[in-house]
């Protein structure tokens, strides 16, 4: 018998959310969504959440399970129970709860809309298809697998402190066009994406890669956009400028061994250190290897907010 601890919220009845526990025998081979349905259909019909395809392709059913966003239909429930035989379910983070596990996706979609999420072709199309090599297809293949589930958005560290950040999903979507051999607006796109709220505001925590249920892996896409931005000569912004001068100085002195950069020990309250995370990631990226730089969710949100303020000045 497992315990499902579910965060309930219904502002029609009670302004504050609360946890409710349900006991359920997890049937053999049941996914988390199967269990949620079992609870809804046999224990409490008023439990609300979204679902549709139950095959990890529509992106409806993302929720937080034991603190991390995932697709409920994609996970075997058994694998999610913690040491106390419990699964804790909460709505996605960084979005306003509407009822129980349902959140308001409006800001999420607004940001997707902001990146001009459509092809801006180079010329009038030919009668038949435009040619695109399989290699060119592969550049946008991963980004195009995004199902807009919001799991990355929910757990993104920057979004916790900065509402203006476009967020991982919109940026992954942006790479799908930045990298498209058929698109004509590459330069314009990377310029726009280098504005505040764009690629340079990502703190490289790679949380979105951990959460993404598809090969879309937003942080990987963000790095690809950064590379294109620099290639296209978009240096005229703080993030990129700092990144470049750092790489240059590294190149000049030549003695900054990546293993010696004490990223983790730098601490998140060290502002210059925090800033240098950007170039570090970039340098590794240019070297073709990308270790996760700063992991683990940032708990002291308030302090981080303060840091961001100072960074803004």
């Amino acid at each position: 018998m497992a315990t499902f601890r579910i965060k309930r919220f219904n502002p029609e009845k009670q302004p504050e959310p609360y946890f409710e526990e349900f006991q359920l025998d997890i049937p053999d081979g049941a996914t988390l969504l199967d269990c949620m349905n079992q609870i809804k259909w046999t224990l409490d019909g008023s439990l609300s959440y979204r679902m549709s395809c139950r095959s990890a392709i529509c992106g409806s059913c993302a929720v937080k399970s034991n603190g991390h966003a995932l697709l409920a239909c994609q996970r075997q429930a058994e694998h999610l129970v913690d040491n106390n035989d419990t699964i804790t379910l909460e709505p996605l983070g960084n979005m306003k709860p509407v009822k129980d596990l349902v959140v308001d996706f409006t800001p999420f979609w607004d940001k997707v809309n902001k990146i001009k999420p459509y092809l801006e072709p180079k010329e009038e199309p030919p009668v038949k298809e435009r040619r695109q090599s399989q290699e060119e297809f592969l550049v946008i293949d991963d980004a195009s697998t995004c199902i807009m589930c919001g799991a990355c958005y929910s757990d993104c560290n920057t979004l916790e402190v900065d509402d203006n950040f476009l967020g991982p999903a919109a940026l992954a979507k942006a790479q799908r066009f930045v990298g498209d051999s058929r698109d004509s607006k590459t330069l314009q796109r990377v310029q726009d994406l280098s504005e505040p709220g764009g690629i340079w505001d990502c703190t490289h925590c790679a949380e979105c890669v951990e959460r993404c249920p598809k090969p879309a892996r937003p942080f990987d896409r963000i790095k690809e956009i950064m590379t294109v931005a620099l290639e296209e000569g978009v240096h005229n912004n703080n993030g990129a400028r700092h990144a470049l001068s750092f790489t240059n100085s590294v190149k000049r002195s030549g003695n900054l061994n990546e293993n010696r950069i004490p990223v983790e020990s730098m601490g998140i309250f060290n502002i210059p250190g925090l800033l240098s995370l950007i170039p570090v990631g970039l340098r590794m990226l240019l070297k073709g290897k990308v270790p996760p730089i700063l992991h683990h969710s940032i708990e002291e949100v308030r302090d981080v907010k303060r840091i961001f303020k100072e960074l803004d000045q």
Binding site: L119, E129, R131, Q134, E136, F137, I140, S144, R176
Partner: peptide, 13 residues
């Protein structure tokens, strides 16, 4: 394809 739909390609593109 003209709208931007992503398709797998043959060796000739």
């Amino acid at each position: 394809e003209h709208m931007g739909c992503v398709f797998s390609r043959t060796p000739e593109g």
